[in-house]
């Protein structure tokens, strides 16, 4: 069963990987992505980052994204953890771990999940910089990264 959590607390990479793979000898490889808070964005220094979300929808959206990854690749187990609340530069924001029989599926499913999360899960970032507070604008490059998987899916089907 995938683990999906939204929390204010930090997470421990080692503990999460251990929990995901515990005693499962079918797992041949694990890919993971960790998103971090940078101290600079769009030319301004960032002192804090506040993550807001839509609690009623977040869990549903994340479960749906992981389900899609499981339907497309050989995913034995997966973990998605996203933090909310106030974070500082160097803090961990998001964790995606995918365990699979082989590395190809693990890498691809992991990248798919983070790409879809960035364009479909209802989280919003607000930065506090020396110029004041500002909401982070969605990036066209994130939309492109996400739609790339749909194009790939269509070419796989045809």
């Amino acid at each position: 069963m995938p683990t999906i959590r939204v929390q204010t607390e930090d997470f421990d990479l080692g503990a999460e990987v251990d929990a995901l793979r515990a005693g499962n000898a079918k797992i041949g490889g694990i890919a993971l992505f960790v998103g971090l808070v940078r101290d600079i964005n769009d030319g301004a220094g960032v002192s804090t980052l506040t993550l807001e979300h839509y609690p009623a929808m977040t869990q549903k959206a994340l479960v749906d994204i992981v389900d899609q990854a499981c339907a497309r690749w050989d995913v034995i187990n997966a973990t998605v953890i996203h933090r909310v609340g106030q974070l500082m530069p160097t803090d961990q924001i998001v964790l995606v771990i995918v365990a699979s029989g082989h590395r190809g599926d693990a890498f691809q499913a992991c990248e798919f999940i983070i790409d879809f999360l960035k364009t479909r899960a209802p989280f919003w970032k607000k930065e506090s910089t020396q110029k004041g507070e500002r909401w982070v604008e969605a990036r066209a490059s994130d939309d492109a990264a996400s739609s790339r998987w749909q194009a790939l899916h269509k070419s796989e089907e045809s």
């Binding site: 960035k118 982070v136 604008e137």
Partner: peptide, 11 residues
């Protein structure tokens, strides 16, 4: 429940 929001920026 109808939610209206800006494009998401998580991750």
């Amino acid at each position: 429940a109808v939610a209206i929001f800006p494009p998401v920026t998580g991750g």
